[in-house]
């Protein structure tokens, strides 16, 4: 499986869910937003979004719908489902717990 970076492997899903929680977006807009927010996380390949999006759709966390864009072109818009919202909350709390544990360990001062 192609992966943008090892860091993203575990976090891309939660980033997508978080951005889609704000508003429904198509893949390109989602990539733009990700770039804006997270800098070069997706630098390796913007296309990595699509396998991730399809996986989230299969899980039932996001819905997809073909709609016209502002330029009147057809694009597939993704939006968060109710289960997606619950999953996002779960992943956020997981992430918070993990990152605070890591922060705690890293902040231990050497004797």
């Amino acid at each position: 499986m192609s992966k943008p970076t090892d860091l993203v492997q575990g976090t891309l899903d939660v980033l997508i869910l978080k951005i889609l929680a704000l508003q429904p977006l198509h893949g390109f807009a989602l990539a733009q937003r990700l770039k804006q927010i997270s800098g070069d996380v997706l630098q390796a390949s913007e296309g990595s979004l699509y396998p991730a999006l399809h996986k989230l759709e299969q899980e039932g966390w996001i819905d997809a719908e073909w709609k016209p864009t502002e330029n009147n072109r057809r694009a597939k818009f993704y939006s968060l489902t109710r289960r997606g919202h619950r999953e996002l909350e779960r992943q956020i709390s997981d992430w918070t717990r993990l990152s605070s544990a890591i922060t705690h360990i890293l902040s231990i001062e050497e004797a």
């Binding site: 390949s45 913007e46 296309g47 990595s48 699509y50 399809h54």
Partner: peptide, 18 residues
């Protein structure tokens, strides 16, 4: 270049469909 290897990405997406 920015989008990446389309064939491989499609393959990955197909895998998620079961």
């Amino acid at each position: 270049k920015a989008l990446g290897n389309m064939t491989l990405l499609k393959e990955d997406a197909r895998e998620t469909w079961g």
